[in-house]
Structure formats: structure tokens, C-alpha cells
Design a protein around this nucleic acid. Structure first.
Length: 451
DNA sequence: GCGATCAGAT
DNA sequence: CACATCTGATCGC
């Protein structure tokens, strides 16, 4: 706790430098207006937003970094007391405005902290970020990747944001007489709203505080804070509910609601039924173009381990569309194939991520074999970094698949038995780098450091 | 009374 | 059911 060198998205005392990947609430737990432990490094846009979220924050603590430029921090090694330097570079994470992933090089090794990210195929911005990251890594080996493992499970198969945005636009245009409300959070999904605005040639209502963010992004022309001049309104997700919609339909006018993201978009076993909500189907929307097989020859087709597909209790006024700011499984897999780190560790611990990322991705990393991973999996809990030598040869592919399914089932069963409080509550993300360890930072499943 | 933290709802 | 957020209760100062 008090021996840290640098911290990423964690705000306890004890580190000499702090990094914020993006300004979502689950990454700022512990950060406040009165926080003043040490310098805070973040992107320019994040720095612009900090005074809005933390009104009396001491701005002299803020250090803005530029994307794609290496910087050096001169720190003190807590183990030796000697000066030590850490180099870092930030890369666009394409998750929400201002979001970055961070690559660090120091006495702890060479590590990449992805933060939350979504790099889609065919996204120019992601392609540029990828090029930048590869340029920063050069021929070096990344010792450890701290991964956005939110959807690090083959059951999560959802389309690109481009495709999802088109679905949403189709839903709106097929309801020309309806008002539309779209559930969003305080940051993120701006690109979607701009696309809707451009496609429909209308302004979108947002609440006043949200308009400040649009101003900072320079996109406020697409938005308005006057409800009377538009039929499309973006509302806080917490105020988006069946009750809200029923009330609007009862007392105001015909209104539909659209939830971008929403359900876990689980790949279903019969291909033709996959991933399209009943509401969307009954609305007679165009059939979705689902995430294409990338044709890279992997041919990995997983089936869900159980039959807990998406629940079907969708409301008549509500459309849920799989617009996600986190990478789907295929994208995560491609990312790890690209980096091939020695070690891999998830940064998210939540109900859907009871399987650690190494479980599915170990084959793609250096120096790790599936048998080892499967063994370690049986020991449960992510505190162990999966590393070290492996003696057993990998089992056959079919056998491995069978074992995976079996283990997934077991994990699911044990999850069901656990109390709601122990497992369903999300715990916060982050990592603290200690200079007395090599790259294997340790955090337990609750995101706390392990001594 | 205020901020930090947690439980619960959305 | 996810993620991210808000509200309200409780605790410590």
C-alpha cells in the first residue's frame, strides 16, 4: 500500500505519480476534489473535464501528456532509495473521449495497461493507434499486459459500433412519429449521437451539464438543451427505465427508448438467431450485419456453455442495441495476438469476468501453454499471475474445448451459489506498480494489492 | 454539516 | 444479464 512507484486508475496514498486513463466513475474511485497525493498524469481532454467533475481540484497537480510521445519520470526507487526513471507513452484507446492506454518501461519491466479500450477492425482511428503502439514497442517484448477483459469471453460477440449505430438510426427512422430517448452516461457515445444527428439532420437534446462536454469536444452544433425543438433526446442512463417510457407514452406522446449496449450480447448456438433482440425484429428493422468472421483462419467457434442466452423480457417501447465501448472477444484476441505479452492480467473483476483472460488467450502469449492455464484455472481466483515454466504438453484441441466447456459450466454453477453481495457487485479497477517487483503487479480479485 | 464509503436501484 | 451512474444511509471528523 505504501510502497508504490506509480498508480494507474488507483488513488490510494503512496505512489509518486498517478495516471488516469479516462474519466469514468469506476476509474476514479478514491479521486476527489481534495485529493492531493502527487502529480496526476492524464490526456488533455481528461484534464479539461476534471474541473467539471471535481470542482476544487488542485489543477497544479495535473500533468497533461501528449498521445504518442515518450516521456520520462524521475522517481525514487523505494527498495534501493536510489533515483530511478520510468518512461511512458500514451496511445488512443478509442473507448471514450480522452481515453488512453499506457505503456511503461522501468525497473519493473515493460508493461502495457490498456485501460478500457475498443479497437475495431476497419476503424481508422484504431488503426492509427495500433500503428503507434507497435512503433512504441518496436522489437521489444512486453512483459505484462493489464487488459480490459470486460468481454474477454467467446460468448461476447457483438458488431462494430459503426454497424450498431446504423441499427439505431434505422430504428429511429422507422419510427418517424415517435419521440426517442437514448440512454447515455456522463461521458461516451458522443460519436453515436453525432452520427444520428447527421443522418437525421436534427439536433439531439442533452441535459445542460452534458452540453458542457459537447462544447469541449467542439460538437455542440449537433445538440440542444431545448426540448421543444427535437424529438430525439439523450438522457442519463439511470433515468432510463420502463416506467419512464410508460409515463412518457401515457402523458406526453408516443415515445420509444433506445439503450446502446445494455444486454450482454451473447453468441447463441443456432447461428440464425444470434444476437438480435426481439424488439428489433418485431420493429421490422433491417437484419443486422453481424460481426463478420475475420477470416484469419482461426475458425474458433465457441458455443455458449449453457442456455442462458439473452433474456427475452424486452419491453414494447424499448430497443436494446449492442453498441459497446469495450472490445468484443475477437477484438481482444486480435489485440493479444498482436502484442503477445509474456503475462496477461485482467483489470476488471465483475460477475461476467469470473474467467481470467489467460484462460482463453494463453495460447496467444509467449511462454504459456493451455494445460498450465487450465490447471491454474482450477485453483480459481485470479491472484496468481500465470507465468513460469510449463512442462506438460498441450492437450488436443477437441479435448481442450470440452474441458473449457466443462469448466465454464462449473464456474457458472459456483457463481450461482455465491451470494449476490460477494460476486455481483462490481469492484473497481486499477493497478499499482511497485518497484520491488518485476512486471507482475499483483492485485486480488477485489482489485487490492496482494502483499 | 461535510466528505467518504457503501448498498441498492436504474 | 453490463456498464456507469445516481440516491440515500451510515460513519468519521
Amino acid at each position: 500500500m505504501d510502497r508504490g512507484l506509480i498508480s494507474v486508475d488507483r488513488w490510494e496514498k503512496g505512489s509518486q505519480a498517478y495516471f488516469l486513463t479516462h474519466l469514468h466513475a469506476d476509474h476514479t474511485k478514491g479521486l476527489s476534489s481534495t485529493w492531493s497525493h502527487a502529480p496526476l498524469y492524464c490526456s488533455s481532454f481528461t484534464a479539461d473535464l476534471i474541473p467539471l467533475k471535481f470542482p476544487h481540484f488542485d489543477l497544479s497537480l495535473l500533468h497533461v501528456f501528449h498521445i504518442g510521445t515518450w516521456q520520462t519520470l524521475n522517481l525514487i526507487s523505494r527498495s534501493s532509495g536510489a533515483p530511478t526513471s520510468v518512461e511512458f507513452i500514451a496511445i488512443d484507446a478509442c473507448h471514450c473521449p480522452g481515453s488512453v492506454m499506457l505503456l511503461f518501461r522501468g525497473e519493473f519491466g515493460f508493461m502495457l495497461y490498456t485501460g478500457d479500450f475498443r479497437w475495431e477492425k476497419g476503424c481508422k482511428r484504431a488503426a492509427k493507434a495500433k500503428e503507434m503502439l507497435l512503433g512504441a514497442i518496436k522489437d521489444d517484448n512486453v512483459d505484462v499486459v493489464y487488459l480490459d477483459n470486460t468481454y474477454c469471453n467467446p460468448i461476447y460477440d457483438f458488431p462494430s459500433r459503426q454497424v450498431a449505430a446504423k441499427q439505431i438510426i434505422d430504428i429511429i427512422t422507422s419510427h418517424p412519429e415517435h419521440d426517442v430517448i437514448i440512454g447515455i452516461n456522463t461521458l461516451g457515445k458522443e460519436d453515436l449521437l453525432v452520427q444520428i444527428s447527421e443522418a437525421l439532420k436534427i439536433k439531439i437534446w442533452v441535459w445542460p451539464e452534458r452540453m458542457w462536454t459537447m462544447d469541449l469536444l467542439g460538437i455542440s452544433d449537433h445538440f440542444t438543451i431545448k426540448t421543444t425543438i427535437t424529438r430525439v433526446r439523450a438522457v442519463p442512463q439511470y433515468s432510463f427505465s420502463v416506467e419512464t417510457l410508460e409515463e412518457l407514452n401515457k402523458i406526453k406522446c408516443p415515445t420509444i427508448g433506445i439503450m446502446p449496449s445494455g444486454l450482454p450480447w451473447v453468441k447463441k448456438s443456432p447461428p440464425k438467431t444470434k444476437c438480435i433482440s426481439r424488439a428489433v425484429l418485431t420493429a421490422n428493422c433491417k437484419k443486422a450485419e453481424w460481426s463478420e468472421d475475420d477470416g484469419d483462419g482461426d475458425g474458433e467457434e465457441y458455443e455458449p456453455a449453457g442456455d442462458i442466452g439473452p433474456p427475452e423480457k424486452l419491453h414494447k417501447y424499448i430497443f436494446t442495441v449492442p453498441y459497446s465501448d469495450h472490445s468484443n472477444f475477437a477484438e481482444i484476441r486480435d489485440f493479444i495476438k498482436l502484442i503477445r505479452p509474456t503475462n496477461l492480467k485482467g483489470i476488471v473483476s465483475s460477475s461476467s469476468c469470473y474467467i481470467e483472460p489467460m484462460y482463453y488467450l494463453s495460447l496467444l502469449c509467449q511462454g504459456n501453454r493451455p494445460s498450465e492455464v487450465l490447471n491454474s484455472k482450477l485453483k480459481r481466483k485470479a491472484s496468481a499471475t500465470v507465468s513460469g515454466s510449463n512442462k506438460k504438453p498441450p492437450g488436443s484441441y477437441i479435448a481442450e474445448l470440452a474441458r473449457r466447456r466443462c469448466l465454464t459450466m462449473k464456474a457458472r454453477l459456483s457463481r450461482i451459489r455465491m451470494s449476490k453481495h460477494s460476486i455481483l457487485r462490481k469492484v473497481h479497477r486499477g493497478a499499482t506498480i511497485q518497484d520491488n517487483e518485476r512486471a507482475d503487479l499483483k492485485t486480488d480479485s477485489d482489485g487490492n494489492q496482494v502483499p
